[in-house]
Simulated scan of single mutants.
Amino acid sequence: MRFGRSILLLVGASVLTAPRATGAAELTCSSSATLEALVACIRDQMPGRSSGVFLPPSPTEMEAWRSVVSAMMYGGCDFVLPPSLWSFARVRSFRDADNGRPYCLLLETADWNGDGVVDRGFGAFIVDPFAERELSHQVSHPIADAGTEIQAITVFKKTRSRTFLLAGAHRHAIAGGRWFHGHSMSSDVAHNTATMFHSAHAAITSFYGWKPWWAVQWHGMAENTCESVDVYLSHGVDAAPVAGDKILELRNNLLAHQPTWRIGVPGSRGCALNATSNVQGRLLNDGASTGWVPGGSPSGWVPGGSPSGWSFGRPAAAHARRFVHIEQHPWVRDADRWIAAVLATWP
């Protein structure tokens, strides 16, 4: 019933949509035959470092983006986008040439100035309607964390996970400081709730409610960062994981297949990249700390929310440890070396 209402609202709203201007450029990646080629194409046409290109979405656009993501989660793909998205985005089906499986794709496509780069930096979202694992593989720093976008889409594909979420611009596409929240303008989606990336994450969170699922966010660290480890796993908090924790299970499964890897977790020393300021992690670990509640604002924040209200480092409740944050050095960003461990951790 909920899915039906979502589609009716989307289609009904779109009846009033004016057609896109004649001759407008569209970057649809229509020639991509596989998910890996598709994601590489999307990455190559997104705003790069210091490009100055990132347009913060309006509340109306974030509401519409979230509604589309929700409809896709419920199995929808053959519908027209709401008016606020029609001029710059598309939703369509995609069939991977390697495995023959169908997917649903939402992506930004508009390139009004014809420079080969999308105009806003909103990113993409992919759903496998016949998934076997309730995992959301997320890449918040494409280009900057080199290779993570291809690594994550391959793991998504070969583990038959539910969703793949990709940011739409280099984290430093526009100038700005590190700390963002609410209305702030920043292309670093891991630290800014007012983005399409976070809106999609909030929609996924609402879809599952308290049902078991995990958001796996793939990051990359520099070679001279945390030199005593190759991989560092956390939940977005600085508390040591407890027995039975998924990141301990993932670490053990990785070591079973990659025994030479040095894998750290909070409490093991050697690294402090605990992602305590990651807003997607904060939403899952402690929704109130980002001003978000289920059924709340579409962007994941409410007026009045501020960084000063966050409780960085506060251990999350055991049932809320659905956020898995992966930091890794360049030489371990090979999807094929992760797949067996992911399959074993989430059978």
Rank of each mutant, 00 (worst) to 15 (best):
S6K: 14
S6L: 02
V11S: 10
L16E: 11
T17L: 01
R20Q: 13
A21G: 15
A24V: 09
S31Y: 15
E36F: 01
V39H: 01
C41L: 06
I42K: 02
D44R: 11
M46T: 06
R49L: 14
S51Q: 11
E61S: 04
W65A: 01
S87R: 03
R95V: 09
D96P: 11
N99D: 12
N113M: 10
D115Y: 05
V118M: 04
G123Y: 00
G123W: 00
F130H: 11
E134H: 12
L135Y: 04
S136G: 12
V139G: 00
R162A: 05
R162S: 08
H172L: 09
A173P: 12
G176L: 03
G177E: 11
M185Y: 04
I204G: 00
F207S: 07
Y208V: 13
Y208D: 00
P212V: 02
P212C: 02
A215H: 09
H219Y: 15
M221L: 07
N224P: 15
N224Y: 13
C226N: 12
E227K: 15
V229P: 11
L233H: 05
A240V: 06
V242I: 08
H257V: 07
P266G: 04
P266A: 03
G270K: 13
N278G: 04
L283E: 10
N285E: 14
T290E: 10
G291E: 04
G300I: 14
G304R: 08
G305D: 09
P307E: 11
W310V: 05
F312S: 10
R314T: 10
E327T: 14
H329F: 08
A335D: 07
W346A: 01
